[in-house]
Write a protein that binds this DNA or RNA. Structure first.
Lengths: 338, 338
DNA sequence: CTGAAAGCGCTTACAG
DNA sequence: CTGAAAGCGCTTACAG
């Protein structure tokens, strides 16, 4: 029987609900409720194992002390880790986080957002899907505080926390050219319209142009659905093109490519210099030296949560109007360097 | 302004709240509310972009249509995938899932459960921590429907969904002996009191005894905190002992060991036959042939969700009394077999 | 220092 | 076919 209410405590003690509420919510201090009564109430509450009904409180207060988190793919450790850090941070501020999953599907994102709104979340942190800009725009007009995470739409003004994808790609490519001495760098990325991927490409292109070795044939697009075939085709073409190195826009493409090479073309595998966006457990396992761009997962999660909680608390001051665009910086890591 | 309530619709149409509620919750059919009025109400609701306040509904109904999911480690793909499948299933039955994370910490599990209870979840699916039996026992006495997932406490009667760890370990070990021809099998597992690990050990021991090649020195325990050192020590000892194969109680130990061997003892690495519990992405990357026991993630998640929803709906019929212990079966997979 | 009352947004008998 | 009323469990002015 977890159905112990304020009223029951009040009745069993012969006092009013209000008094019990005051005491149990810690507002009975400094003279508002007598010390003796307070103690009696607290004791009784413990005896009865009273737990406040947060639903009722939220309804009354108009705040649920809840944050909705909309992830693109929960089974991807990158996002799962973001979720972890967001929860850790939110907990400190007495917010509970609802995690939902869209599986990169815009319809699902729409329903997820609807459900969260219906459950009266105070705000949302969203990793939006590729085609979801309409959906986000609608949400914005409903005045729910939101923060976009990891991705954004360039044509919509929103609060957003992500890394500086352009800069990271530019610097990584420059490093390959200037430090590793690469003369011909290939680039492999996903075929999609996500802004952060476009930024990575732009960073690569600019760095290559700067070094005066840019050639559009060095850029290969692969499809997520047919990743295996596409990467094989792409790496073979790049090899024919004579590249001495490849920069991967994300770890999944890198892993697939390396796996293919270990089985089919050890010569290329051995001599190819490789840099990739994002960390993957497998990198630690590969003997081949690898450079990769690490995103600050904790900082990303924490910053997003902090920003959202700030928005929630300043809502009336229409702080939502001045959108914040926070670009975090990344770090270069190296595995198996000798 | 997402603050559109039933009352506003009612007022703007000059009808009662009750009528609006009836229509919008789909209970206005067959003669309860006039067709014309119904249509007017529905139209108005759309115009105003009405979204029911689920908190209020839950409070009134005493059901929140919400499930709490307490995970031991959300950043572990195994659990993240379970979460994914549970959400997919629950969604079909109009349940929303609250995912929380304990990080294998019993205190955190306790607070997570408290928070979920305070939020009036209708039931919980829990991957319990090692020392959390007291906490689960308390929860049981509060009559909240719960289902334990992946792990359980042998001395507490609960509903539980997990694989048959004993059988899986027994069969895998037998396979190593009878099919792979191993003469001396080592076993590496975590040093903890979790029942499912004990079961895996028991399965290994029984299979070894059956083949009359059991020796307690073949069992090595490693600590999660000092995994790297412990695995090195353990594998070196096993090598000295002269094993021709190792059975790992979980993938993380297997990976750590293999990584160590590739760098330090290629002779052993090459000749060692390896079987592991659980799948890890890295297995696909390793050229060495590997056998591993795959847990049916989707079935585990779905079964748990199905069981819990069943319990929630039959609560009054005290179905909670007859605990269900569902043991799912596993599958043996092989990577890089020639 | 304590109590009575109103109300958050919904739903469900109960009248008529 | 529709309305008025009560109540889910809380909190917050307002009296006294």
């Amino acid at each position: 029987m977890s159905k112990v209410s304020l009223k029951m405590i009040a009745k069993s003690l012969g006092v009013s609900d209000a008094t019990v509420s005051l005491v149990l919510s810690g507002k009975g201090k400094n003279g508002r409720v007598g010390k003796e009564l307070s103690e009696k109430i607290i004791k009784k509450a413990q005896e009865l194992n009273y737990r406040p009904n947060i639903l009722a409180r939220s309804l009354r207060l108009g705040r649920s002390q809840t944050i909705g988190l909309v992830l693109a793919d929960i089974s991807n450790p990158f996002f799962a880790n973001l979720a972890f850090h967001i929860q850790e941070y939110a907990e400190k501020f007495n917010y509970t986080v609802f995690i939902t999953n869209t599986n990169e599907n815009t319809d699902k994102m729409e329903t997820a957002i609807e459900i969260l709104k219906a459950r009266q979340v105070d705000g949302m942190i969203i990793v939006p899907t590729e085609k979801g800009s309409k959906c986000i725009e609608n949400l914005l007009s409903s005045s729910t505080p939101i923060v976009l995470l990891d991705r954004c739409y360039p044509d919509i003004k929103t609060n957003v926390v992500m890394i500086d994808n352009y800069l990271a790609a530019y610097e990584a490519t420059s490093r390959m050219i200037n430090v590793d001495g690469c003369k011909k760098v290939g680039f492999m990325t996903y075929e999609n319209s996500l802004f952060h991927f476009a930024e990575r490409t732009r960073g690569f292109v600019d760095a290559m142009k700067k070094a005066d070795i840019y050639d559009e044939r060095l850029i290969k697009h692969v499809n997520y659905q047919t990743l295996e075939e596409d990467t094989q085709k792409a790496i073979n073409e790049l090899t024919t093109e004579g590249v001495d190195s490849v920069f991967f826009a994300t770890d999944s493409i890198c892993i697939k490519t390396l796996k293919y090479l270990t089985k089919n073309d050890l010569v290329t595998y051995d001599k190819l210099k490789v840099t990739s966006f994002d960390y993957n457990e497998i990198f630690d396992f590969i003997e081949k030296p690898l450079s990769y761009i690490v995103q600050p997962l904790q900082e990303l999660g924490t910053t997003a949560a902090e920003m959202l909680i700030g928005l929630i608390n300043n809502e009336e001051e229409e702080a939502n109007k001045e959108m914040k665009n926070t670009l975090l910086s990344t770090q270069m890591h190296f595995s198996n360097t000798k």
